[in-house]
């Protein structure tokens, strides 16, 4: 068992590393398709009136006139040693730029995940224990939430709770209530995913014999829910959370824009519009690292938790609707 697990773990870790490196290279190739970069774009702005000679001297200082392959190789070798390079747009180290904004995004993502879990649990609980009509209505909520674009939710929340009711100040974007509403906007579509998986698994578990037996012993609804239905459903839900991390990061890009938060999302926006390749490569790789790490963790932990899973195969792809 031990050596089998060790081999499995080593394989998964190696795969994870390869994926991260590929993500870095992939971003380089994609962004390099469009000619230009922050340095050249500023120099060529006609308002500046620089001569060709001045432009070429500065471009060569930044090494932007070297062949694409050479640039990729150099930046990749730096990346492997942990050096994220210098932003071409702001001339500051990329690590500093990401470091300054990472905290805000982590807070938003964590709060959104919490909101999503609470909503999903509430919906799950409701579908089991509310009267039939309400339960049926509740079952359609995940689908409704998945149809709401998070930027519309965000705009409406701001319109109602900030402008009309004055509950929070939008320019105080990192404050408690503003963060809460941003988390709600980000968390609602995410809660839909978790709720769908939860409901499917709850239905499945509730149909099992042991659940009927537990019900007949007459414990309170909450205890029934928590101990007998929720626990067996938790592993697939954990799997979904690993998938949902990517969605949280995606959604954060838009939500941060709307709520005026200075997080990774706003950094992405600024970097994309100016073609600041070093920052984009670092952010994409960071996102890939997070996704891969969370999934890796789940992959490594799952076999330890669920003895039914064989080590050769993948973990039970929770009955995620496609």
């Amino acid at each position: 068992m031990d050596s089998g697990y060790a081999a499995y773990a080593a394989r998964r870790v190696l795969q994870a590393v390869v994926v991260i490196l590929l993500a870095y290279v992939f971003t380089f190739l994609v962004i390099s398709v469009l000619p230009g970069d922050p340095v050249t774009n500023t120099l060529r702005n006609p308002q500046n009136g620089f001569t060709e000679e001045q432009i070429s001297r500065i471009v060569s200082y930044y090494g932007l006139d070297r062949p694409v392959g050479v640039q990729l190789w150099e930046s990749l070798s730096r990346f492997v040693t942990g050096d994220l390079g210098v932003s071409l747009r702001s001339n500051l180290p990329v690590s500093r730029m990401i470091g300054e904004v990472l905290g805000s995004t982590l807070v938003l993502a964590a709060s959104a995940l919490a909101v999503a879990l609470v909503l999903a649990l509430a919906i799950g609980f409701g579908t089991r224990f509310l009267p039939k009509r309400a339960a049926r209505l509740l079952r359609s909520f995940p689908s409704l939430f998945l149809s709401l674009p998070n930027f519309v939710i965000g705009l409406v929340l701001i319109q109602v709770f900030a402008f009309q009711l004055g509950l929070f100040r939008v320019i105080d974007a990192e404050g408690g209530l503003a963060t809460f509403f941003a988390a709600v906007a980000l968390g609602i579509p995410v809660s839909a995913r978790i709720a769908e998986v939860l409901i499917t698994n709850l239905d499945h578990e509730a149909g099992q014999e042991y659940a009927a037996v537990a019900r007949s012993r007459g414990p309170g609804r909450a205890r029934l829910f928590a101990r007998h239905l929720l626990k067996p459903s938790s592993l697939p839900v954990v799997t979904v959370i690993a998938v949902v991390v990517g969605e949280l990061l995606s959604g954060a890009v838009i939500t941060e824009q709307i709520f005026g938060r200075t997080g990774i999302g706003s950094l992405v926006q600024r970097s994309v519009t100016t073609q600041d390749l070093p920052v984009l490569q670092a952010i994409v790789s960071l996102a890939a690292v997070v996704f891969v790490a969370v999934n890796l963790l789940a992959d490594l932990v799952y076999p330890l938790l669920d003895p039914r899973v064989r080590l050769g195969g993948k973990r039970q792809k929770a009955a995620v609707p496609a």
Partner: peptide
């Protein structure tokens, strides 16, 4: 003149 050896541009529209 700026300083190309340090990647510093001259300022825009200064008399050439």
């Amino acid at each position: 003149r700026g300083d190309a050896s340090r990647g510093i541009n001259p300022i825009g529209l200064f008399p050439k």
